[in-house]
Write a protein that binds this DNA or RNA. Structure first.
Lengths: 222, 222
DNA sequence: ATTAATATTTAGGCTATCCTAAATATTTGC
DNA sequence: GCAAATATTTAGGATAGCCTAAATATTAAT
């Protein structure tokens, strides 16, 4: 059984090497200030983590996650983000309040719990901050989802989430035929209020206010 | 901030002195075997707990919860049981599976979380094992709820819960006009299958199978 | 009431985790 | 390419828990 402390270190290393090249090593310096602890503690923990084969550690160079470490990190991130969705969508916490509680909930050990929570939440793919939730196998999209307002005219993308569980927004969207997975294209941007005219699933068209577009997260087709 | 270990001790002392007289002292012996630890560890922890004023401790006599300790214990029990309801009613875990996970969840610190969870679950008063859930002020009924099958003819009681979130049972009950708070009296017990004939709220009467009565929890009027 | 049995505490150690200060490597500036 | 600045590790020590074995209290039995 792993201590909370070990899990915190692993998650921090993952976070700090997000988007960096493979085998990116995190220095004790950077990790210590991220975790608000001393470099000495990090140095010591690096040895312990290397022992347990969670990281590859070269003294004076820093640590990088091993496959085993990355798997643990991603499962923590998955739990963290699923709990954030729960707190926001089911308990009505604001997106800015969910982090600290999820920080504790992510350490609950139960594979079955995670599985059932995922199903209960209807298999969400993004959390209330717009970050992707790794799937059960640990896969996670590389880019961060961006709001529909950042899609330029002619751009084609897929809806991956909505940044608010406000039921009015959701009902507006379902009324217009927009949901998770909907493929859309920006046809034009109207003058004055910047409303978007969209083509949905290459068929119908719909108009959506700037305010609504800000809360819709998309993943652009490459 | 309190450690998980301290919380476990406090909860164990509460559990072991449940139903006993006020100021009932729990011996190191009993507590050690309950927590599967050594008596020496308990003895040591007793000193720490007494220091922090969670217990009154007389060496060689054992420890009893102080008001502060009792308050902490009850808040842990409350969280534990609320999470059990969540796991059972919302995530579909069997009542026998919920304990171990709730054991971890009860240590999550957030007053607001507990409050919102309580509301989300619609302020339940019993957990999936039929135990009462302390309210936000820490009040908890003394007796355990018992199944309707244990109410004798002529006995009057109030429905305090249902031991299964099986929606078929719930819809059967609402169809018959039985819900939380319904006051009922056993008019007769039918031969052969032990079905109960009940008087509801001193007005209508209803018949209920033994199988259904087993899952309905009541609190007898004194 | 004294001894035998039982319960409890103390002593002495262990590990994980943290800390500060000192020692050692590495990097950078000239 | 060496000295100064910076980064990293090691040394030494603290605390919370846990353990076993030894010492001490209490209780029970004759």
């Amino acid at each position: 059984m792993l201590s909370q402390s070990i899990e915190d270190y692993i998650k921090a290393i993952w976070t700090l090497s997000e988007g960096k090249e493979d085998k990116y090593a995190v220095s004790t310096n950077v990790l210590a200030s991220h975790l608000m602890t001393s470099q000495a503690s990090v140095s010591e923990m690096y040895k312990r983590l290397a022992d347990k084969e969670f990281i590859d550690y070269i003294p004076y160079q820093g640590g990088s996650l091993s496959p085993k470490g990355r798997q643990l990190a991603v499962s923590l991130i998955r739990k963290h983000r699923l709990w954030e969705v729960f707190l926001h969508a089911k308990l009505g916490f604001g997106w800015e309040e969910v982090h600290d509680i999820a920080e504790q909930l992510e350490h609950i050990h139960s594979h079955e719990l995670t599985k059932r929570l995922d199903a209960f939440l209807d298999y969400p793919s993004i959390d209330p901050h717009g970050d992707y939730i790794p799937d059960a196998e640990g896969n996670i999209p590389k880019q961060r989802a961006k709001p529909l307002t950042e899609l330029t005219i002619g751009g084609v993308a897929k809806v991956v989430g909505v940044l608010d569980s406000n039921s009015k927004l959701l009902s507006l969207l379902s009324q217009k035929g927009i949901g998770l997975g909907t493929s859309l294209c920006v046809q034009s941007i109207l003058p004055f209020d910047d409303s978007r005219v969209l083509t949905l699933n290459e068929k119908q068209s719909a108009e959506l206010s700037y305010k609504a577009c800000e809360l819709i997260l998309i993943q652009e087709n490459r």
